[in-house]
Simulated assay, not measured.
Amino acid sequence: MISAILLSLPLVSLLPVVSAHGWLGSVTVGTQTFVGNVPNASPTGTVIRQIDDVDPVKGASNAFLNCGQNAQLASDVAEANPGDTVAFTWVNGDDGPWVHNAGPMQTYMTSCGSQSCSSFDSSTASWFKIQEQGRITPGGDWAMSLMNTGAPANVTIPSNIAPGNYIIRHELIALQIAQTEGGAEFYPACVQLKVGGTGTGTPSEDELVQLPGAYSDTDPGILVDVYSNPDAAYVFPGPAVAAFVAGNSTATSSSASSATTSSSAVASSSSASSASCKKRRDVVRPRTLSRVMKNLVPQ
């Protein structure tokens, strides 16, 4: 009976479920912008590994925690330099601005070794953290919330990193229902790079982690009520930022120049996001339903 009622509802009534999730719509590396493939659509050339569903990854041991839902190799590689800004523009399931506003953003990198990252299997990669972003101010809004206006999240490639082939992985952890175990929502995305320069910075062996493997569903930053005690210090899951990265980037904010965070970068102005959105307006976007709705709506 319930299924019959749901099936009788207009599809438009189901759209908020889709919009609440999302994907990495575009990335700007230095001065070059690359548009991501729509989840589960026919792929085109890009540097962003394509996922097949806008739903979050659930569970800290989920294999898709690596690069996203069934992430596929991307065909292209972005040229980058130490110190370049990488601007990640996340969108919701309707290609509008990101909607979640509570939870951290973290960025990792892994070396693809001597091979191009376009053919690198990241499932057994060793990752090191280069950035973590929490609240803008103690007890205040999260840096993630700045993306609700369409602004990108800016991350700086370490200025002393050794040249080579790398994947840079940006991760959003939405905590709005993280009060119960398994409630945290993970949104990882992977971008393929080739970094130049003459740096020598590399992580130490004890700073490398597996993904999945670095988190537990009961970690204090994953099983947490961020609303009952907003003044409590947030404990970032995973390793600390690699020691060689320290001091390589600065915090910026579109909403408050004096804002402080426990991170190395904050989402900034929406100009880069606006430019990338214009490039995507003519792209046909198939509707991607959440897994719950797929069980209710005929395909």
Rank of each mutant, 00 (worst) to 15 (best):
F120Y: 01
R281V: 12
A71P: 07
G247T: 10
K279W: 10
G96C: 02
V27C: 10
G30W: 03
F244R: 03
A251S: 07
L15T: 03
G93N: 03
Q72H: 13
S111I: 00
S114H: 11
P104D: 07
L208G: 03
V226K: 04
T250A: 06
N40C: 14
C117D: 03
P104A: 06
R287E: 13
C190N: 07
G59T: 07
P10G: 14
S118M: 04
L15V: 02
P203N: 08
P39A: 13
N148I: 10
Q179M: 02
C67N: 04
W90Y: 13
T28A: 02
P230F: 04
V47H: 09
V86K: 07
T31Q: 12
I157A: 01
P203D: 03
A259Y: 07
S276K: 09
M109V: 00
V297K: 09
D76C: 10
A143N: 15
F236W: 01
V191T: 01
G45L: 12
P188L: 04
P237G: 11
L7V: 15
W23S: 07
Q50H: 06
V245S: 07
P298T: 08
S216C: 13
S276R: 07
H100C: 11
S216D: 14
T180H: 14
G199V: 09
G213V: 06
L146F: 09
S262N: 12
L193H: 00
T261L: 09
V284I: 14
P286K: 12
N229T: 08
Q50N: 06
K129R: 09
N70F: 08
V266R: 12
D121K: 04
V91E: 06
A80E: 04
V155W: 00
S216G: 15
A87V: 12
Q69G: 14
V297W: 07
S118T: 05
S273E: 07
A125C: 05
S159I: 15
F128H: 10
S159Q: 15
L193G: 01
W142Q: 10
K279G: 06
P220K: 05
G22A: 14
N148Y: 02
V29D: 06
Q115C: 00
I136K: 14
A242L: 11
S262M: 09
L211A: 06
D141S: 14
I173H: 14
G113V: 05
N92L: 05
R135G: 13
S19V: 12
G197I: 01
A41Q: 06
V77H: 05
G182H: 01
G68L: 08
Y187C: 02
S8D: 08
G103I: 05
A71I: 03
P203H: 05
A272N: 13
L211R: 11
S119K: 11
T107K: 05
S19Q: 14
N40Y: 13
G96V: 00
Q72F: 07
S116R: 08
N70I: 05
D225A: 05
P220C: 09
F128C: 11
I168K: 10
P10F: 12
S257T: 10
D121P: 09
G134R: 01
A272D: 13
Q131D: 15
D225S: 05
I130G: 00
C117H: 02
P39H: 12
G238N: 07
G150K: 00
V209I: 09
N148D: 13
D217A: 00
G25C: 12
